[in-house]
């Protein structure tokens, strides 16, 4: 209801609800599609001195649709000894977690689905739900590679939940709120030594947290160098091994949509969210520009995520755990400490 006040019309509840459903679909699919086309197809290809898809549409831009069409046509194979019901449910759980992540994301002063006091807290909680989907997928496939992949994923996601939360705590302390809108506002209205042109994006003060958050994001998304749950040269795409057709597509969309969601979180927490630096427009204008600004920032963060993905080899499982517990968590804790001291001092 609130999100629609900008148009100056009162809509019925069901109309608002259906608009929201449309909006969240757009919010999930658009970054996911953009990531796949821009980064997976094109950027990766250029980095690897090749062109990437070129046939479907101008510069292969329709390749994505072709891929979706291909997956929809494929047979949906279920292994004989699989737990059929759980096998079917698993991708939806992963996808649901991704969709729910966007429910707390602010896209503009009035453009959001919900504006909860505990927005970031809920987002982190919801992101951990996807682990269950992955575990179920790994277990229900009745495949050892899948099981290993699922267990690796669970261990990894649990381990990296912690540095991620701790990295966010620094931001929360500085902003003084758990509300994502409040965090955006704190960055937008803040100033650096009296200069308020670009506000105070927490990237500048919380760069350590940003680094930890990005690394943890990389791990949460199971992207290289933390992709051992889906390592194709070891355990043959892990928990996704037995999936095909539509259900594989759901996992695939889930992977990139979650990348989009985490990039959006990072953009909101550290890059100022939907707010535009240097200019100060009224709320109504920002309601339209804000989503685009956020989208641009999502692409920036996505670029970093995928750049690392295409460059690095992957860690080993124990090295990954050691990295989380020995480096990331202490660094994040020190960051919290320093932030607290500075917060109290100034």
């Amino acid at each position: 209801m609130i999100s629609l006040s900008v148009l100056g019309v009162e809509l019925a509840y069901w109309q608002v609800t259906s608009l929201r459903v449309l909006g969240v679909l757009l919010a999930v699919v658009l970054p996911a599609g953009a990531f796949v086309y821009l980064f997976l197809f094109k950027m990766m290809s250029f980095m690897q001195s090749r062109l990437g898809p070129m046939e479907a549409g101008p510069f292969g831009s329709m390749q994505l649709l072709a891929e979706v069409g291909k997956f929809l046509q494929k047979e949906d194979i279920v292994p004989e000894r699989a737990d059929r019901r759980l096998f079917f449910i698993a991708p939806y759980i992963v996808l649901a977690s991704t969709f729910l992540l966007f429910s707390v994301m602010p896209f503009g002063p009035d453009v959001y689905f919900t504006n909860l006091d505990t927005g970031i807290f809920l987002a982190l909680g919801l992101s951990s739900v996807s682990v269950i989907g992955i575990l179920i997928a790994g277990w229900a496939s009745a495949n050892k590679y899948s099981l290993i992949g699922g267990i690796r994923a669970a261990g990894q996601l649990i381990a990296y939940e912690l540095p991620m939360v701790l990295a966010v705590v620094g931001v929360v302390i500085q902003a003084g709120t758990l509300n994502l809108q409040g965090i955006v506002a704190a960055q937008h209205q803040g100033e650096i030594f009296g200069f308020s042109g670009i506000g105070n994006p927490f990237l500048l003060t919380q760069f350590v947290a940003f680094g930890v958050f990005l690394v943890a994001t990389q791990a949460e998304l199971t992207q290289t160098p933390f992709d051992m749950p889906v390592a194709e040269s070891e355990i043959v795409t892990g928990y996704m091994t037995e999936y095909s057709g539509l259900r594989f597509l759901l996992f695939f969309i889930g992977e990139f949509a979650t990348a989009g969601a985490f990039a959006a979180l990072a953009a909101t927490l550290f890059l100022g969210g939907w707010a535009l630096p240097f200019v100060s427009l009224d709320d109504n204008a920002m309601n339209f520009i804000g989503p685009l600004v956020l989208f641009a920032k999502i692409l920036m963060v996505g670029f970093l995520i995928f750049w690392a993905r295409f460059t690095f080899p992957r860690f080993r499982e124990d090295q990954l755990q050691a990295f989380a517990w020995k480096y990331l968590i202490p660094i994040a804790l020190i960051n919290i400490l320093v932030t607290m001291i500075l917060k109290v001092a100034f």
């Binding site: 909860l116 807290f121 982190l124 909680g125 951990s128 739900v129 669970a154 261990g155 649990i158 939940e161």
Partner: peptide, 17 residues
């Protein structure tokens, strides 16, 4: 949110694990 984070995200995952 606490319920989701603690019980679903952590405890049940550890159960399943």
């Amino acid at each position: 949110a606490t319920q989701v984070l603690v019980y679903i995200g952590a405890i049940i995952v550890l159960f399943l694990f």
